[in-house]
């Protein structure tokens, strides 16, 4: 009984592992553009949080304005780079700068 169970386990797993699969997921390399788009979303999230906390009365006006300006500049730089890369058609560039 044990031998039969062992054989069934072996055959079942072997078939599962090596069964020919034609729809294999491609392993794409993430591009700088993908990274910038993620970064843009994060900066927008940070802006939303800042705005919410300001409305909640957590920051004085001058602190809020300074932080908002810094985040908006960061977002503007990111969007400018995204637009530049999109114009250059580098959407699938494997070259990454860290």
């Amino acid at each position: 009984m044990s031998t039969i169970t062992c054989a069934l386990l072996l055959i079942g797993i072997f078939a599962y592992v090596f069964w020919p699969e034609h729809r294999v997921e491609a392993q794409t390399q993430k591009t700088r553009l993908d990274f910038l788009r993620e970064r843009k979303d994060v900066i927008y999230d940070n802006l939303r949080d800042l705005n919410f906390e300001y409305r909640a009365g957590k920051y004085p006006e001058e602190d809020y304005q300074a932080q908002r300006a810094a985040l908006e500049n960061e977002a503007a730089e990111t969007i400018a780079e995204i637009e530049l890369l999109e114009r250059q058609g580098l959407t699938h560039s494997p070259k990454l700068s860290s």
């Binding site: 802006l47 939303r48 705005n51 919410f52 409305r55 908002r68 500049n73 977002a75 400018a80």
Partner: peptide, 22 residues
């Protein structure tokens, strides 16, 4: 409220800045 704030606070000035050639 958050959706409104996103447009008012985040996207609008940022887009304006980028369109403005920042």
């Amino acid at each position: 409220a958050a959706s409104r704030s996103r447009v008012q606070v985040a996207e609008a000035p940022v887009l304006a800045a980028t369109k403005g050639g920042n």
